[in-house]
Amino acid sequence: MTDITLVEAVNLALMHEMEHDPEMVVLGQDIGVNGGVFRATVGLLEKFGNERVLDTPLAENMIAGTAVGMAVQGLHPVAEIQFMGFIYPAIDQMVSHASRMRNRTRGRLSCPMVLRAPYGGGIHAPEHHSESTEAMFAHIPGIRVVIPSSPTRAYGLLLAAIRDPDPVVFLEPKRVYRLMKQAVEDNGEALPLDTCFVLRPGSDITLVSWGAMLHETQQAAEQLAGEGIDAEVIDLATIKPIDMQTILESVGRTGRCVIVQEAARTCSVSAEIAARLAEEGLMSLFAPIRRVTGFDTVMPMFRLEGHYMPGTERIVQAVRQTMEFA
C-alpha cells in the first residue's frame, strides 16, 4: 500500500472497477492516449483497450447523451467532462433524461451512469476553468451529486458512484488533486453514499464543508483549537441528497454551525443546509447559522481568485463571531 494523491485515487478506483466490471466503459475527451488532462484515466487505454476506453469527439452534450444511452442499455459508463466550466451543455441530458429515465418508465429502464468533472478554483487556470456550480446539479431530482475531499474518499466514493444503480455526478476538487497523499488500499471497498463523514469530533461548533474547502476548514479547526474552541468538522461528501441527520445530530450537540463552501452564496448548497437547520434544528441553536462562501460574482480570473476563495482566515473569523454571539 503506497501513499497516493486524490487524482491517483480516482485512477485507482477506475482501474479497479474496469477490471472487475466488464460492463464498465469510460468515455470523454483526451481520456485515452493522453490519460485525461489531469491524468485521471492514465493507463486505462493500455490495459483495457479502445473498446472500453473511448476518446470521443469534442461535444459535451453528446458525451452525456451517449453515456445515457449506454447506461439505459445496462452498461456502466463513466463519462469525463474535462472541466466543470464546460459541463453545461451536458446539464440538458442530466435534467431531461438521466435523472428521469427510471421514473418515467416506472423502473422499466434506468440510467446507472457517472458523469465526472474536475471543479473549483485555486489553480490559476484560464477563464471558465474555476467555477463551483455543484448546486445546479444538486437541484435536479433523481440524481446524486458526490464530492470527495481526500484520496481515501475519492477511491471509496467513486467505486460507490459507479456501482450505484442511478446517475451520479461526481465532482473532483482539482485544487486538492495533488495537495495531499494518503495510504489507499486497493481493496475494492466502496464508501457509503448519502452519508456525511465526521472528520474531526468537537463539542463547541459544527463546521460543514465539502471538496477542497475542507482543507481550509480543517486548518481553521486546528487554529481554533489553539484558542480553546473545539470545532467538529463534517465532510458533506454527498451533496445530493444531503445527510441532514448527521448534521442535525452534530448541531444538536454543539448548538452552533458554520457552513463553508467555495461556490457563490445565493441558492447554494449552504443555503439549503441553513434552511434545513432553521426548519428542523432551530431550538438547538445558540447563535445564527453563518456561511463562509464565494461571492455572488462571476468567478474572477486568477489574478483575483485568491480574494474570492474563502480562506482559513474568513472561516476562523466566522467561527469567532458565532462563538461571541453566544
Binding site: 451517449t66 445515457v68 449506454m70 439505459v72
Partner: peptide
C-alpha cells in the same frame, strides 16, 4: 445522442 450510446 442517446441513440448513439445505445448503438454503442
Amino acid at each position: 445522442t442517446q441513440a448513439a450510446g445505445v448503438a454503442f
